[in-house]
Computed example of a mutant assay.
Amino acid sequence: MTKPSALPENNMRCQSLRLIQIRSFQDKTIEPSENLTLITGPNGSGKTNLMEALYYASAGKSFRTSNDGELIRLGEKEGTILLTFTVHHVDQEIKIRLSRENGKKIFINDTPIKRKELVGLFRTVLFTPDELQLIKGAPQLRRRFLDMEISQVSPRYYEEILRYTRAVQQRNAALKNAQFSGKKPDLDLWDMQIAKGACYIVRKRLETISKMNETVPEMEKILTGNKEKLEIRYLQQGSETPRFDMEWYLEQLSSRREEDARFCHTSIGPHRDDCLFLMNDLDISAYGSQGQQRTAILSMKMAEMEFVRRETGEYPVLLLDDIGSELDGARKKALLDFLMKNQVQTIVTGTEILSDGGKIIDLGNNE
């Protein structure tokens, strides 16, 4: 494997991760390599627990559960995640305290912050065996993929998503209350807020997809050596051609009020949109093999990584959980060679050593 010569001008780095009463760990510290780290050990040794904690420090939530309490070690009331990292050559520390009674508290350099302020500080891209659901699963998974990607590079986008979601919830609540009261709901205020937020959100999603489509084919070629054409296409509810103007949204919301009132929901907006992954202009969920789907997802993740670098000037940290079960030897080598060449800090888990390069952390040794 090609070894990097020197650290890049700017690349994000995780310096250390300490878990106190988190999942299977009573008190565990790891210090990843500046480039490739292989976390190995038998099943049940806690490999995915470490990846979950790294992602939690990035996103403020788990990729395995929506219940924060599940991260706290059994029998304990509290748990702590401590992450030190470097961004633009400046050392930072994220501390997250989880409590069964008091929820979570987040700190950056000992200063308390809200979750919305956490997103984008320590940027990561995650690949797990479950990522196949990005192609085959529900639309909300693909929306979440886009929203998390954009939020890591745009604090305003994350704020707009929160504001838009609240407006939709308030509109739905007004429709529900109207059913009980028998009075006609006043929806004009919520429609204006939804239309305004939708315009911004859809425009940013389209811009992001356009930028990813510039690099997805290149990533696919690196992994497979072939010239298959991969593309992401945005699917907007109510229009074959994506629209992001206020007048269109207001018209759609108005025309659907009767239907929305019956079901107490909002049937138009970015919360109803979807994405389609195409290979050679065919829907890969229907026409791609499982191997092609896995490679396509990994190509998308690599394109996401390139998108973050272009937007921020730094590669994010790449988290590859159990990649050994997803790719054959040739594709794993092609991926790791690319990552080492570009000096992307990469943390990989598996039950066996995947490469002769990088640092090995063996959880089977009970370090």
Score class of each variant (00 low, 15 high):
M1A: 14
M1L: 13
K3T: 14
A6G: 14
A6V: 14
P8I: 02
E9N: 11
N10Q: 11
N11Y: 01
C14G: 08
Q15C: 09
L17D: 05
L17T: 10
R18W: 05
I20D: 07
Q21N: 15
R23T: 11
N35H: 08
L38W: 08
I39L: 13
I39A: 11
T40Q: 06
K47E: 09
L54Q: 09
Y55A: 00
A59D: 07
A59M: 14
F63V: 04
F63Y: 15
T65I: 01
T65F: 03
E70S: 10
E70I: 12
L71Y: 03
L74E: 07
G75R: 13
L82S: 08
F85N: 07
H88R: 05
H89D: 14
D91W: 07
D91Q: 15
E93I: 12
I96E: 00
L98T: 05
E101L: 08
G103S: 09
I108R: 09
I108E: 01
N109L: 08
N109G: 12
K116I: 05
V119Y: 02
G120D: 06
T124M: 06
V125S: 05
D130F: 03
E131Y: 00
G137I: 10
A138W: 09
A138E: 13
P139Q: 12
P139F: 15
L141H: 10
E149K: 02
I150W: 02
Q152L: 12
S154A: 00
S154D: 09
E159A: 05
I161C: 12
R166S: 11
Q169P: 15
Q170I: 10
R171P: 01
A173E: 11
L175N: 10
N177I: 02
A178S: 14
K183F: 13
K184P: 14
D186C: 06
D186P: 02
L187Q: 01
M192G: 05
I194G: 04
K196V: 01
G197P: 00
V202N: 10
R205M: 01
L206H: 09
I209F: 03
T215H: 01
P217F: 03
M219R: 02
I222L: 03
N226S: 12
E228H: 13
Q237N: 09
E240A: 02
E240P: 14
P242S: 03
D245K: 03
M246G: 02
Y249C: 07
L253D: 04
S254M: 08
H265L: 10
S267D: 07
S267V: 07
P270F: 03
R272C: 12
L276A: 12
L276S: 10
M279H: 08
N280E: 06
L282T: 11
S285R: 14
Y287K: 13
Y287W: 15
S289E: 03
Q293W: 11
T295Y: 05
K301P: 02
E304S: 13
R310L: 11
T312M: 12
E314L: 04
P316L: 00
L319F: 06
D321K: 13
S325F: 03
S325Q: 08
L327N: 02
D328S: 07
R331M: 10
K333H: 01
A334S: 04
Q343D: 07
T346C: 04
T346V: 05
I347R: 07
I347M: 07
T349G: 04
G350L: 08
I353R: 09
S355G: 00
G357S: 13
G358I: 00
I360Q: 05
D362T: 09
L363R: 03
G364Y: 13
N365M: 15
N366V: 13
